[in-house]
């Protein structure tokens, strides 16, 4: 038993390094998507103290809109632009109709409001696009579908090209967001708002503009993850689940931390794959990916309640 837990998995890893790399690669692909979604959560949380329960359904809604528009005969690239437009309108409507009237209410009320948004979007998506599964328009978008074969250590490593594309796009988006947050006026305003609402108001930062902006960013993130995940698993309301995978990422990385979201996402993605292949399947009969991340997050929470990278609470005495 001990041998199975502590020795055999590592022996396996070293015996077939190419397979280990394959596992890590697949972990990286899902990890970077988790990280992206978690970033969406973090941005909205930091700027408005709202835990955005609707992030998951926004992924579904973006993917559905994209596929739905294409089904109406709109060229694929224009579909992307239109979907971005829809996500922007959604951000404006949410700010005007939901957030603005609720300013200053307790956090829990705003959280409940996002559950309301979730239910509304589920209904709206079903009415407009129907509830049946759809196929992501991968090829039409020009995403390559072949695979790349590499031969590290004399073994075989298969990288699917759409995964490579997803990783590159997601990484670019993450880097772009980081630059945006740290180097631009608007990005600084978002971070300032996260630190001190009143002070942000006092220097003339407008809550409304920032809120629309962060919800729109969350919408862009939803679209990118929707495409990437939809290309692997098809477009259906089940896609929402990927957003819940971002919850343990947030617990691990801390709700406030942008770096935490990125590192937490990558860690969870890779660790859950490693655990599934080397421990889960041989010892527990597989399918550990559904719960592993949550258990890991619980263990982290026991020892570091603010998460591994939660923003240090600066307290002067």
């Amino acid at each position: 038993m001990l041998n199975d837990i502590f020795v055999a998995p590592f022996v396996d890893m070293f015996a077939a390094p190419d397979f280990l790399m394959q596992v890590l690669w697949e972990g990286l692909v899902s990890g970077i998507l988790y990280a992206l979604i978690a970033l969406g959560f973090v941005l909205i949380y930091r700027s408005s103290r709202i835990f955005n329960f609707a992030q998951g359904i926004m992924v579904v809604f973006a993917a559905l809109t994209l596929v739905g528009l294409h089904a109406m005969g709109v060229p694929a690239w224009i579909c992307i632009l239109l979907t971005l437009g829809v996500m922007f309108v959604l951000a404006v409507v949410i700010e005007r109709v939901v957030l603005r009237p609720l300013v200053g209410q307790p956090d829990i009320i705003l959280f409940m409001a996002t559950i309301g948004i979730t239910l509304f979007l589920i209904g709206l998506g079903e009415i407009i696009f129907g509830g049946e599964n759809k196929v992501m328009i991968t090829e039409e978008l020009g995403i390559p579908t072949g695979s790349v074969l590499l031969e590290p250590f004399g073994g075989l490593l298969i990288l699917e090209q759409k995964d490579i594309t997803a990783v590159i796009v997601a990484a670019l988006l993450v880097v772009g967001l980081l630059i945006f947050l740290n180097k631009t006026r608007m990005g600084r305003a978002i971070r300032a708002l996260g630190d001190d609402h009143q002070a942000a108001l006092s220097v003339g930062i407008s809550l409304q503009t920032i809120w629309v902006l962060v919800w729109f960013i969350a919408g862009i993130i939803a679209l990118v993850t929707g495409i990437a995940w939809g290309a692997r698993a098809g477009v259906s309301f089940a896609l929402e689940v990927i957003a819940y995978k971002a919850l343990p990422v947030l617990m691990l990385g801390g709700l406030e931390s942008i770096t935490g979201a990125i590192i937490g996402g990558l860690m969870i993605g890779m660790l859950e794959k490693l655990f599934e292949i080397y421990w889960g399947q041989p010892l527990l009969g597989g399918n550990t990916e559904t719960w592993f991340a949550f258990v890991l997050a619980l263990i982290v929470l026991l020892f570091r309640p603010q998460g591994l990278f939660g923003e240090r609470i600066i307290e002067r005495v």
Binding site: R188, A189, R191, A192, D195, A199, V203
Partner: peptide
């Protein structure tokens, strides 16, 4: 017209220079 609030209210996690730059937001 701009207010400097009681108790400073700096943006804690921003650097001093970033804090100053937020003043130029408008």
């Amino acid at each position: 017209v701009i207010q400097v609030m009681e108790g400073r209210h700096c943006f804690q996690h921003l650097t001093v220079e970033e804090n100053l730059m937020t003043g130029a937001y408008t």
